[in-house]
């Protein structure tokens, strides 16, 4: 079970939707957010935050998704946390770049609340070790614009 989520995103609507989806699934899931990469990195290094999965928006002020991912990959402890690149831009455009940079997958932000909830539900029930397999199953089902490493 994956029960500790972190979302770095400067879009208030997306943050609220994400949180509502998680609460709808299970009210006890831990959820942390940051409005930009800089604050994400700060929280990961200084606060007692140990997410089991990180969702990273790409276009953020201060430190964007790419730079944040690089910083995460440079740290031995943080590198073990799976990162989902989570953005509006087309999968064909930024998908491969995300995988190359070390993300476990690239997920285009879903166009409906139901789809978002569906994706998160599947992640939550997955075991930590089985995450990649879960993602691969979702990718194969073609229900989401998803590219897995």
């Amino acid at each position: 079970m994956i029960r500790n989520f972190f979302l770095a995103d400067d879009d208030q609507d997306d943050k609220e939707l994400f949180e509502e989806a998680l609460r709808n699934i299970d009210n006890h899931i831990e959820f942390h957010t940051a409005p930009n990469g800089k604050e994400l990195i700060n929280q990961l290094f200084t606060a007692n935050v140990e997410p089991e999965i990180i969702f990273l928006d790409i276009n953020m002020p201060e430190l964007d998704g790419w730079e944040s991912l690089k910083k995460i990959q440079q740290d031995d402890r943080l590198r073990t946390i799976p990162v989902v690149m989570y953005s509006t831009s087309a999968m064909v455009l930024d998908g491969n770049k995300a995988i190359k940079a070390g993300a476990v997958c690239y997920l285009e932000k879903p166009p409906s609340f139901i789809k978002l909830k569906d994706f998160l539900e599947k992640i939550i029930v997955s075991s930590k070790d089985g995450l990649i397999d879960t993602l691969k199953t979702i990718e194969a089902s073609k229900t989401h614009n998803l590219l897995v490493a």
Binding site: D11, D13, L17, N59, S87, T88, S89, A90, L93, K109, P111, S112, F113, I114
Partner: peptide, 16 residues
Amino acid sequence: SHDLKEPIRKIRIFAG
């Protein structure tokens, strides 16, 4: 691919 898509995605989400 990104910026113009974003408001459309939001409109779809909230209409949904």
